[in-house]
Design a protein around this nucleic acid. Structure first.
Ligand code: SF4
Ligand code: SF4
Lengths: 144, 144
DNA sequence: TTTATTTAAGATAAACTTGTCCTAAATAGA
DNA sequence: TCTATTTAGGACAAGTTTATCTTAAATAAA
């Protein structure tokens, strides 16, 4: 469903948030270890999320990644997905037609709209902060 | 959502079915033109669908692709998706964890299950023959 | 039996995603 | 100021998906 980029991105964000909730900044190494992801690839992903202002980074000793107070309450999964994959998941015809045209719909038009609505709802409704809280409570895990 | 392979595969199957409904066999060239897909790539996809007994093929002059009477009423989208992409869409953790373990769920466990259920339902409920009928009626289109 | 037509099969190429590595820039602390 | 630490950025490598090309096999019709 998601690209590897987005999978790692979401996992990283949940881990960083769970630390930011305790005012802890975390380094790339800790993140990659916690979510069991390739370190350099994760670096690239966090770089992009940082550019998109989804995560905050600090260079140098005691540096690392964190999520600033102002964003904490509002960040949802859709912010992460859009920052990394753009609107790919939401725009364009689900069957690959060149355009998405309701006047000239593909055979699955209505059905695709429903599935997409479901996915979008899931992404909009899930705040990173809530997912991070589940993680801290031991209700969920970021690696097996 | 789907791979290009599956997108072309579904479109091809709907087109072939709409012809089989009129007892017409169609050649690769006609299929690729009708669904606006790369010809050789479409050939490979049809080859796989044929091996999986999802479509029927005949070699030589007056040959081409068709769907046998016995399958016509029962074929649904999920047959095409599984023949081409396997169970990728349905198995494994949506967040990319190494295993899908309800005892040790990822933070999106329940939400992923719901989305997957929705997608699976869409694939199971849609018969190729009904989609082909919409196409013939001019209610839907396979290219823009 | 020969030829033309059509799918099957396999090799190869191009494009994209995923992953690595090396150097630069920033910054904290000695 | 110098050094160690950490992210940023760019180049590159590996892997996967998408796409093409060429030859083989099947078969209908002349
Ligand atoms: S049918 Fe649905 S998916 Fe296909 S083009 Fe129209 S809106 Fe897009
Ligand atoms: S949480 Fe959902 S997606 Fe993740 S492992 Fe469990 S079932 Fe699979």
């Amino acid at each position: 469903m998601f690209s590897k980029t987005t999978e790692y991105g979401i996992r990283a964000m949940i881990f960083i948030m769970s630390n930011s909730l305790q005012d802890k900044r975390v380094r790339l190494k800790e993140i990659a270890a916690a979510i069991d992801s390739p370190e350099s690839f994760t670096a690239k992903i966090l770089q992009n999320l940082s550019k998109a202002n989804v995560v905050d980074s600090v260079k140098g000793p005691h540096g690392g990644f964190e999520i600033n107070k102002d964003k904490m309450q509002t960040l949802t999964l859709i912010d992460v997905v859009i920052a990394l994959d753009g609107n790919k998941l939401f725009e364009g015809c689900g069957l690959g037609l060149k355009a998405c045209n309701s006047e000239k719909p593909c055979p699955l038009h209505q059905h695709f709209l429903e599935v997409r609505t479901k996915i979008t709802a899931m992404l909009v409704e899930n705040k990173i902060i809530d997912l991070a809280q589940d993680l801290q409570t031991g209700l969920s895990f970021l690696k097996q």
